[in-house]
Design a protein around this nucleic acid. Structure first.
Lengths: 138, 138
DNA sequence: ATCGCTGCAAAAATTTTGCAGGTAA
DNA sequence: TTACCTGCAAAATTTTTGCAGCGAT
């Protein structure tokens, strides 16, 4: 956590109780969480839902968190590790919403081609897989 | 449009004024539109916003339309062509929201590997690219 | 002491739903 | 005729914002 807190300090931002609690929840959960899920996981009213929304904006802006959309109407967030750049994808069950993390990513070259071909700069991508998980097939 | 209307009929669904108008807008626009954009493009109150939401659910369920999430809080929809399966991706400018269609897709094999490796069935994927378009770089 | 942060409450934005009447087939 | 569809209005969700006070540095 020290790397994260120092990054917060570097942005002249404060290490507060709610932020520590939110980061704790994110560290403890391996998959993207909605703000409401974070709120529910927090020890009983540890902070306001509005504070979570504000914190996620801040953390996203600082690159400490990534935003995902699984197609239901709620944004999800996942902590970016201190060493890696947090780049990976997900395989999501369309029935039960189970999430499997996908490490493999062979899109980097394609990404560069697409950037060059269209004159776009700083191109990134988001890739999500959807299907029916083994349990839900039975 | 005949293929689409016959598909509607096949689902014991009716060809109504609002639905024709919505399909007309979608056919005329090459990129994903939010429901509000569809509403605005409709000749002045041609149908209710709620009707658009209901229509998009129906059309999505029938596979005539695909849903996209570009990360702002609104779903976008794009018409699926009559011949192709509508599978393609987008390159979205993070400043001005310009959208470029990306035909190329080399994920199919990866998709199969991921499905097999995790025991998932009927696996699909969504891939979007984000960057800064040429005009916004200046 | 300063500036940022928080809770609370209100508002905005997106999406869903109930219902009574209208319309395609 | 019958089932589906629509507009209108209300509600449910998700997200944002204003403000007064509190808290980290």
């Amino acid at each position: 956590m020290s790397a994260l807190t120092s990054r917060l300090r570097g942005h002249t931002r404060k290490i507060t109780g709610p932020r520590q609690a939110i980061l704790g929840i994110l560290r403890r959960h391996p998959h993207p969480l909605t703000n409401k899920e974070i709120f529910a996981a927090l020890p009983r009213g540890r902070c306001d839902l509005a504070t979570i929304y504000r914190s996620m904006h801040l953390l996203e802006e600082m690159g400490m968190v990534k935003r995902f959309d699984f197609g239901d109407g709620a944004a999800r967030f996942e902590l970016v590790g201190e060493d890696d750049d947090g780049h990976h994808h997900h395989l999501v069950c369309m029935r039960c919403a189970e999430v499997v993390e996908i490490e493999e990513c062979s899109i980097r070259e394609l990404e560069e081609q697409i950037a060059a071909r269209n004159g776009f700069a700083t191109v990134t991508h988001k890739l999500e897989f959807f299907g029916i998980c083994p349990r839900c097939q039975r």
